[in-house]
Every structure is written in structure tokens, then in C-alpha cells.
Simulated scan of single mutants.
Amino acid sequence: MSAIPDINIGLYIDLEIDGVVVTDIQGITGGTVTANVVEFQHYNEPEKRKLVAGKSVDPYEIVCSYVPASASYKALALLAKNSKKVVCELTLKGGADTASGSQVLTFNGFISTKSISTEIEAVRTVTYTLIVDGGITETDGV
């Protein structure tokens, strides 16, 4: 399968954590990759120099509808409870089917927090914070 060939919307995604397909997703944010920059001064040079010392990846926030009877909810609640490190695959699709191309983001991580939100006149949700351990590998197609 090929990479996503054109601009697209965030509606078409699949998320798999530790072999469990996450259902009832309302939104996923995060995963910002940031270079950690070291600044240093040399004698006889007016401007400081900068080097990249390493990179870090921000956590993902996964917001799902609160459906405690679902297999997805039960599996993620258990992962949040035991902080087990797992393999995560986030598939970004170019459209409703894989013929539109896709990108797969793969990384190791663990769920550090689980929070339930119950607002008046809003859908009850559960939010998981997924910590990325190491980097993210991005590959074409599924």
C-alpha cells in the first residue's frame, strides 16, 4: 500500500494497543517530537551555537466514549492499572478504505493516567494518557 497521497481528514484512523483495537475514539492528540537543544558559547564568537542533544516525544491523549462494558475499555483499564509497556500502532488512513493510502505510526509506550469526565449535557468520556517510550517509527501503508 502507498502513503497518503493528498490532504485528508482525521476521521479515518485505527489505534491498536497491545493487540487490542481501541473503539469509541472521539479524539487523539499529542505525539509532538521535540529536539532538545544545547546552547554554548565559544570565545571570540558573538553568537552562541546550538546542537541537538536528543529528542523527546510528548504523550498522546486518547479520548473515548465511556463504554465500560466494551472489550476495548476493559483492556485499556487493565493496562492503565498495571502500567505495562506495550506496542502501539496508530494507522492514519487517507480515506474510508486503505486504497486511499495510509501511514502507520508505531511506538512502545504505557498508559500513565486514566480519567473519566461526566459533564452535564455532554457525552461521558474516558481519557487515557499514553506515554511514548523512545521514538516513533512512521511507515507507509497497511
Rank of each mutant, 00 (worst) to 15 (best):
T23C: 02
V87P: 10
T113H: 14
Q103D: 05
A122Q: 12
A99D: 06
T129A: 02
C64E: 00
T129W: 11
I111G: 00
K81G: 01
D140P: 04
A96Q: 05
P46E: 13
T106H: 06
N36F: 03
D97H: 03
L11S: 13
S102N: 04
H42W: 13
A75K: 04
A71D: 14
A71P: 00
T23I: 02
I111Q: 01
E16I: 15
F40I: 08
E45H: 14
K114A: 09
L79M: 08
S115T: 10
S72P: 00
I17S: 12
I28F: 03
N108C: 13
A77G: 01
N108I: 07
A99H: 05
D14E: 05
L76A: 01
V20A: 06
S112L: 09
I28T: 07
G134Q: 10
V142M: 04
P59I: 05
A3Y: 08
N36V: 11
M1E: 12
V21R: 05
E47Q: 07
S83G: 04
L92T: 07
K55D: 01
D97S: 10
S117Q: 12
V52W: 10
I136D: 12
K74N: 09
P5M: 13
D140E: 11
L105E: 13
R124D: 07
D6F: 11
D14I: 03
I17Y: 12
K74I: 07
T113Q: 14
S83C: 06
A3R: 09
V33F: 07
I120W: 14
R124G: 03
G134K: 08
G31E: 05
V20T: 13
G27I: 07
I17W: 11
T23D: 00
T32Q: 15
L78P: 00
L90P: 09
Q41H: 05
V21F: 01
I25A: 01
Y128L: 00
R49S: 15
N44W: 02
R124Q: 10
T137L: 08
V142G: 02
C88I: 15
A3F: 08
K93F: 06
S112F: 07
A75D: 00
N8I: 05
A53S: 12
N36H: 02
K74T: 08
V20H: 03
A77E: 08
D58E: 15
I136H: 14
G141C: 09
D24I: 02
A77S: 10
D18H: 15
R124F: 02
S83W: 04
A69C: 05
I4R: 14
S2G: 07
D18Y: 08
I4F: 11
V57R: 12
V63G: 05
L105S: 08
V37S: 12
L15H: 00
Q103Y: 09
K93R: 11
T32W: 03
V63T: 14
S72H: 00
V52C: 15
G30E: 02
V57A: 13
V38Y: 13
T125G: 00
D6S: 11
L15M: 00
D18P: 10
T129R: 10
P46A: 13
I17R: 05
E119L: 10
G19C: 06
Q103R: 07
I131C: 06
D24Y: 12
G30I: 04
K50G: 05
A71H: 06
K114V: 06
F110Q: 01
G54I: 03
I131D: 04
Q103C: 07
